[in-house]
Measured scan of single mutants.
Amino acid sequence: NLYFQGLKYMVPGARVTRGLDWKWRDQDGSPQGEGTVTGELHNGWIDVTWDAGGSNSYRMGAEGKFDLKLAP
C-alpha cells in the first residue's frame, strides 16, 4: 500500500496536500493548498498547519483512512 509506505516520511516539516480520503472541505484553503506537518504521527492521526492559515489533525491510518499525501 503506497500510503503505508509513505508514512515514514510523514514527519514534522514534511509538506502535504489532501489525499485519497479527504473529507474536510476547504480546511486546506480555497483553492486547495499545501501544508506542513507539525507533529508526530499518533494513533493514526497527524497534525498539519496549512499555508492558508488553519491547522488541524488528520487521519493517516486512523479508521483505515488517509486524508493526506506528500506534496509533489
Results as ranks from 00 to 15, higher is better:
N1P: 14
N1G: 13
L2K: 14
Y3R: 10
Y3I: 13
Y3L: 15
F4C: 15
F4G: 11
F4E: 14
F4T: 12
Q5K: 13
Q5I: 11
Q5C: 15
Q5E: 15
G6A: 14
G6T: 15
L7I: 12
L7V: 10
L7D: 07
K8F: 11
M10G: 02
V11E: 09
P12R: 10
P12F: 10
P12W: 08
P12E: 11
G13A: 03
A14Y: 04
R15H: 03
R15V: 03
R15G: 01
V16S: 00
V16H: 00
V16C: 04
T17V: 15
T17P: 02
T17Y: 05
R18V: 08
G19W: 05
G19K: 05
G19H: 05
L20Y: 11
L20R: 13
L20T: 13
D21F: 03
D21G: 05
D21H: 09
D21R: 05
W22S: 04
K23M: 11
K23E: 12
K23C: 15
K23Q: 12
W24K: 03
R25K: 14
R25Y: 12
D28W: 04
D28M: 04
D28T: 05
D28E: 06
G29Q: 06
G29A: 05
G29T: 06
S30T: 15
S30L: 14
P31H: 09
P31L: 07
Q32N: 14
G33R: 08
G33T: 11
E34C: 15
E34P: 14
G35D: 03
T36S: 07
T36D: 02
T36R: 07
T36M: 07
T36L: 07
T36N: 03
V37A: 02
V37F: 01
T38V: 13
T38H: 06
G39E: 05
G39H: 08
G39A: 09
E40L: 14
E40F: 14
L41K: 05
H42C: 15
N43W: 09
N43I: 06
N43G: 11
N43T: 06
G44R: 00
G44V: 04
W45H: 03
W45C: 07
W45E: 00
W45Y: 06
I46D: 01
I46Y: 02
D47R: 15
D47Q: 14
V48A: 00
V48K: 00
T49R: 11
T49C: 14
D51M: 03
D51Y: 02
A52Q: 10
G53L: 02
G53W: 03
G53A: 04
G53I: 01
G54H: 11
S55K: 12
N56G: 15
N56S: 10
N56V: 05
N56K: 07
S57Q: 11
S57R: 15
S57A: 12
S57D: 02
Y58W: 02
R59A: 01
M60K: 01
M60D: 00
G61V: 02
A62R: 04
A62C: 08
A62L: 05
E63V: 05
E63F: 11
E63C: 14
G64V: 05
G64A: 07
G64S: 07
G64P: 00
G64L: 07
K65M: 09
K65A: 13
D67M: 03
D67C: 02
L68M: 00
L68V: 07
L68D: 01
L68H: 01
K69S: 11
K69W: 11
L70W: 08
